[in-house]
């Protein structure tokens, strides 16, 4: 795993040197500031609206960072031929994939935590504070970033940059609706179609399980610990599956 960590550090170093993260950072801070400063009908202390929109901005910007950083990892290594000296070293292909995922996840999580820090500062300035459910929400979101990074890295082993980014973002949007869409469809379909739909429901990861934003916004009580643990196991299972698929695909790849 030491080799994977070396690859991860390289991903982080590369990402820090690229402009896109800084552009996205400025964009998100600007958007959050606009949301914080916006005034509606001379009302003051609007926390829920600010929390909801800030969470939305942070979620999307972080996912864009994960997708932008993750999607280019394997194709760029191949196109720029940097992969050849690297793979001639004592580095397993699985370590390469895990390293790429780890690096993508860490840089995205770091950005997410910075955004959350800014959000919390703004929240304090509005007279609110940190709640237990907010911490749970941040934790689940970190799991979601790791899951999305694993999907992006898996796809980057056989897709081009643009195709990967499109599919990943599309899945990120649809991943929230899979459960509901399938559940609705199940009520009006035959046994065979129902079997197929339910299989899809089990196979595809539900990204909405990592989203506590509504409970945070509407100041609900914290979620029971068993739920957080189950979601954590759920994330670990899917991350392992995607990394395994990515590794198998990359192992079969002729460089």
């Amino acid at each position: 795993m030491r080799a994977a960590w070396i690859i991860a550090k390289n991903v982080i170093e590369e990402s820090i040197r690229k402009k896109e993260i800084y552009v996205l950072f400025i964009l998100s801070v600007a958007m959050m500031s606009v949301v914080a400063m916006a005034s509606f009908f001379s009302l003051t202390g609007l926390i829920k609206y600010f929390t909801e929109l800030s969470f939305l901005i942070i979620t999307y910007i972080t996912v864009i960072i994960a997708v932008v950083v993750g999607a280019r990892q394997v194709p760029t290594e191949l196109n720029s031929r940097t992969i050849y000296p690297l793979m001639a070293k004592p580095l397993k292909r699985s370590e390469f994939i895990i390293g790429k995922w780890l690096g993508t996840s860490l840089i995205s999580i770091f950005c997410f935590l910075v955004f959350e820090g800014i959000f919390i500062v703004l929240l304090f300035s509005k007279g609110s504070g940190i709640s237990c459910i907010l911490i749970q929400g941040i934790f689940l979101h970190i799991l979601q970033i790791m899951l999305i990074s694993s999907i992006v890295i898996c796809l980057s082993t056989f897709m081009t940059n643009a195709a990967n980014a499109t599919v990943s973002i599309l899945y990120f949007i649809l991943g929230y609706w899979i459960g509901k869409a399938i559940s609705d469809a199940l009520d009006n379909c035959g046994a065979f179609l129902a079997w197929i739909l339910r299989s899809i429901n089990y196979i595809l990861p539900h990204l909405d399980y990592f989203d506590l934003s509504k409970k945070i916004v509407h100041q609900w009580q914290p979620v029971p610990a068993w739920v957080i643990i189950t979601v954590m196991i759920y994330a670990v299972v899917y991350i392992s599956i995607f990394l395994l698929i990515g590794t198998l695909k990359f192992q079969r790849k002729q460089l």
């Binding site: 459960g179 429901n201 399980y209 979620v223 739920v227 189950t230």
Partner: peptide, 10 residues
């Protein structure tokens, strides 16, 4: 799945 969803959403 249903219990998870029940606990994770309002």
């Amino acid at each position: 799945f249903a219990k998870l969803e029940y606990n994770l959403k309002p």
